[in-house]
Lab assay of single mutants.
Amino acid sequence: MEVRTIKVFTTVDNINLHTQVVDMSMTYGQQFGPTYLDGADVTKIKPHNSHEGKTFYVLPNDDTLRVEAFEYYHTTDPSFLGRYMSALNHTKKWKYPQVNGLTSIKWADNNCYLATALLTLQQIELKFNPPALQDAYYRARAGEAANFCALILAYCNKTVGELGDVRETMSYLFQHANLDSCKRVLNVVCKTCGQQQTTLKGVEAVMYMGTLSYEQFKKGVQIPCTCGKQATKYLVQQESPFVMMSAPPAQYELKHGTFTCASEYTGNYQCGHYKHITSKETLYCIDGALLTKSSEYKGPITDVFYKENSYTTTIK
């Protein structure tokens, strides 16, 4: 009895394709271990004539594949690729409408935090270190965002349907971005203890939790000093293409032309909904596939993004 075979390709990165001759009487799992086709788990399936010449994702289970996976995804987590594939199996079914010149995501599976993050990423200057993220990001900007969303979920250790947080998501993504040249110098002034300067680099240099107003941050924000008295913390120097200011959701007025974009969060910790506000020729609110415009805006804002380049204080 002759062994019926077909020729397929296996890959971990969709760049390096490895030619395989597979036995049609055995499952993919018996031949390769966990195997995925377009995100779908085909591990328990036997090869079919229609699979001839198709590319299958496999887990990096030998040295060659491990090197290829690390170079593309910059992670050695053995569960990463499987999590990416199972997320992709959902995100490829989502709709990605162009809204006001940006790629958004039609609401499904509690994905409003991903839509808000995706919209924000198209408006701030950011370059990702893992080629996987950078490639998928370019495709997302062009309207094909399924891979990018699935990668975000995998890097953030999230599953489809789980509630997510924009600030946490951005923080994970910033860790995989090139923020080497970003720098922030802060000064804390206390009447009792004097003053202390701190220099922050990388992710810490672009994120701040405690106030939404970048102007206020430049002037000074009140913080408790270690001595128990009130101290003032203010920005001395900022070198970065953008800054992200966050605070627990509270009524906040966004003035046209003073910011790049913002995240609105309605609801409580267990259950809520994100919308995205962007400042173009007027203010726009993007909620999944829905767009509304207004000249002014007041609502429960939790993150505001500002364009920056270089700032030095005039406070002496």
Rank of each mutant, 00 (worst) to 15 (best):
E2G: 06
V3G: 13
R4Y: 12
T5I: 09
T5N: 15
T5K: 10
K7L: 12
F9P: 08
T10M: 15
T10H: 07
I15K: 15
N16K: 06
Q20E: 12
V21P: 12
D23G: 12
D23C: 13
S25A: 12
G29D: 09
Q31H: 14
F32H: 01
G33L: 06
P34E: 15
D41L: 11
I45R: 13
K46S: 13
P47F: 08
H48E: 15
S50F: 14
H51M: 07
G53V: 08
G53T: 11
K54R: 14
K54E: 12
T55P: 07
F56E: 05
F56N: 03
F56Y: 10
Y57C: 10
V58F: 15
P60E: 12
F70Q: 11
Y72V: 07
Y72A: 12
T75R: 06
S79Y: 09
F80K: 06
L81R: 05
R83M: 07
S86Y: 10
T91N: 02
K92I: 12
K93Y: 11
W94K: 06
P97I: 10
Q98P: 01
N100A: 15
T103A: 08
I105S: 08
K106W: 12
W107I: 06
W107P: 02
A108M: 02
D109G: 01
N110P: 00
N111A: 00
Y113E: 06
A117H: 03
A117P: 00
L118E: 00
L119V: 02
T120N: 11
Q122D: 05
Q123L: 05
L126A: 04
K127S: 14
F128R: 03
F128A: 02
N129S: 08
A132C: 03
A132V: 06
A132L: 06
L133Y: 04
Q134Y: 07
A136R: 04
Y137W: 09
Y138Q: 15
A140L: 13
G143Q: 09
A146Y: 10
A146Q: 10
N147V: 11
C149L: 08
L153N: 00
N157Y: 07
N157C: 07
V160W: 04
G161L: 00
L163S: 02
V166D: 06
V166E: 05
E168Y: 05
T169H: 00
M170R: 01
S171H: 15
S171N: 12
L173I: 11
F174D: 05
N178H: 09
L179A: 00
K183Y: 03
R184N: 00
R184H: 04
L186P: 03
V188Y: 08
C190L: 07
C190V: 05
G194V: 02
Q195M: 14
T198W: 10
T199H: 11
L200C: 11
G202Y: 02
V203A: 13
Y208W: 03
Y208A: 07
G210T: 01
G210Y: 01
L212W: 02
Y214I: 12
K218N: 07
V221R: 00
Q222F: 03
I223T: 13
T226Y: 10
A231F: 02
Y234V: 09
Y234F: 09
L235M: 02
Q237M: 12
Q238Y: 05
P241E: 06
F242P: 01
A247E: 00
A250Y: 14
Q251T: 15
A262Y: 01
T266R: 02
Q270P: 04
C271I: 11
C271D: 06
Y274L: 04
I277C: 01
I277A: 00
T278Y: 12
T282D: 05
Y284I: 09
D287Q: 00
D287R: 00
G288P: 03
L290N: 15
K293D: 13
S295W: 13
K298C: 11
P300A: 10
P300Y: 14
T302S: 07
D303R: 00
F305M: 00
N309L: 02
Y311Q: 05
T313F: 14
T313V: 11
T314F: 14
K316S: 15
